[in-house]
Design a protein around this nucleic acid. Structure first.
Lengths: 312, 312
DNA sequence: CTGAAAGCGCTTACAG
DNA sequence: CTGAAAGCGCTTACAG
């Protein structure tokens, strides 16, 4: 009927089409009292015809708007980030905040649409704060912390030591620690395991995250995977190679995924309470927006916990 | 140093603090040419001190802003929704769109922050379009489609028939179909399986999604789970009960999760290409905003595929 | 029941 | 190099 408009219809377009003033359009659209029913119908029809949808910006300028939190996460297809996102979304909804999300590559765009950003990617990513000075940013377990920035730190020392203790007590002597960095051993999670093994007089072999079991040193009797997903893959490979888990080889994951409880054998893992992580990150956002300028960046620590299941 | 401000600082606060005009503040903040370096430093310092962060609304009104897509999903801790969200985020980033996300409960708030909404929850959820007339909404596989609304329909007939054929060919005769609805059998995915079994002269038993295997009829030799996660749980229960899969009992999931490939036994499943689903949904959003008023709601169909792995 | 005016916070020409 | 003016789309008092 009408040609597609070159630009989106505004309130004045609707007013003109209905032959009324802007305020009357507002009244009709918001079901406000004191408007002639016939007038309202006419306005609503015009709005429909023009596909009028009020501009978020016009409205935001004039009414108190919901805060919008930016959330940068790693690969959402990994349930780890899904669980975290779910926790953040829940807390944000409870506070009436909106959440704009992006995976690492989309981080730079976020600043334009958010009042504050939480970044949790596991890998390095484009800084969301470039071109957005003074944007409050909270980093979660950053591989390379940005100095002066608020962050949630993951503490792994105790849990790694516990896991190592557990492996050694069960007889493992030739462990391998898998890692994302090149050379392996550069990430804080791998470093925590290596330190724990060394403290107990065992020198672990280091290999890259993606190494197949068949390429690890002969005699390997324990593997610390980079994360649970990698742990699953490893268990699968061991199953196909007919290696008994945990008798011949023990496997530890990192992340504490809920699905790890349903695979066979159940994957032992370093778990972290993602609901607590989400809460800490949101608290920091709040703290950041209220702290005086120049205050030292706030930090929260969340502890990993070793959860022994069947694979060790 | 300064007391926390009652309201966020605006550009005029910064201008006043630095003793310049608003335009000069804009120039300093955006690294524009033609500004005295000393002036710029003074402005930047004032902005930092006041924690000034430009309002999205003021800016959005005056510069062409990124489109913002609302995405309502089911439980993100389920990798199924994570994979879909990941696909949507990727496509949106490629088009320069922002994405505000919410889980089902947060849907009503979304309308205020989005230009269009894609809803994919698997369950019923509060309508995001209340109070937001003319908001373009695309529903993905809605349990109860909203009449007149654009949607992506999941076609399961062929894939269900294939799965059923596969089960019968391997000797299953006493199948159970698990479902979310009360009574079971009300969802389209369960209905497709039931119809497929009946076509082949087999009457499946229906039970609620959460039923333990031990509560299913004696002699049950095949189970169609509501989704892959339920399938994993079932496999785990069968493992603990020492029932051989697939020899004694065959299990089929629905969703096609990537992790299903790493659990043992690998879960056979009805898979759907979530990247294709995401693409279809985004296409519909575009179509919706360009179609003339009163046009019939566009629909896209995406086919499930039966993926036989080890559990059948 | 309806409309003219003011103002939210910002940027973009345009003057000086 | 810096500032006064106009205007983006909307809502909220205030008049009539």
């Amino acid at each position: 009927m009408s040609a597609p408009p070159a630009r989106a219809a505004t309130i004045v377009d609707v007013a003109r089409a209905a032959g009324v003033s802007r305020q009357t359009v507002t009244r009709a659209l918001h079901d406000m009292p004191g408007i002639n029913p016939a007038t309202r119908e006419r306005v609503l029809a015009a709005a429909r015809e023009l596909r009028y949808h009020p501009s978020r910006f016009g409205r935001g300028l004039v009414k108190p708007a919901a805060r919008t939190l930016g959330l940068v996460v790693g690969d959402l297809a990994n349930p780890y980030y899904g669980e975290l996102a779910s926790a953040v979304l829940g807390l944000a909804a409870a506070r009436g905040w909106h959440v704009v999300m992006a995976e690492a590559a989309g981080a730079p765009g976020l600043a334009a649409g958010a009042d504050a950003v939480i970044a949790f990617t596991g890998t390095e990513f484009p800084d969301p704060a470039v071109g957005a000075p003074n944007l409050p940013v909270v980093e979660v377990d950053p591989p390379r912390p940005h100095p002066g920035r608020a962050r949630v730190v993951f503490e792994r020392t105790a849990a790694s030591a516990q896991a190592v203790e557990h492996l050694l007590a069960r007889g493992s002597r030739r462990p391998v620690v898998l890692d994302v960095t090149t050379p392996p051993g550069g990430s804080s999670r791998a470093a925590a395991f290596v330190a724990a093994f060394r403290t107990r007089g065992v020198e672990p072999h280091l290999a890259h995250r993606t190494s197949a079991f068949s390429h690890l040193p002969a005699g390997t009797d324990a593997v610390v995977a980079h994360n649970d997903l990698d742990g699953f893959r490893l268990l699968r490979e061991l199953h196909e190679a007919r290696r008994a888990v945990p008798r011949e080889v023990r496997v530890v994951g990192v992340d504490g995924l809920a699905v790890g409880d349903f695979c066979t054998p159940r994957l032992s893992t370093l778990a972290i309470d993602l609901a607590e992580v989400a809460r800490a990150a949101l608290d920091l956002v709040l703290e950041l927006t209220e702290a005086p300028a120049g205050a030292p960046p706030p930090v929260r620590v969340v502890e990993h916990v070793f959860r022994a299941r069947e694979s060790t």
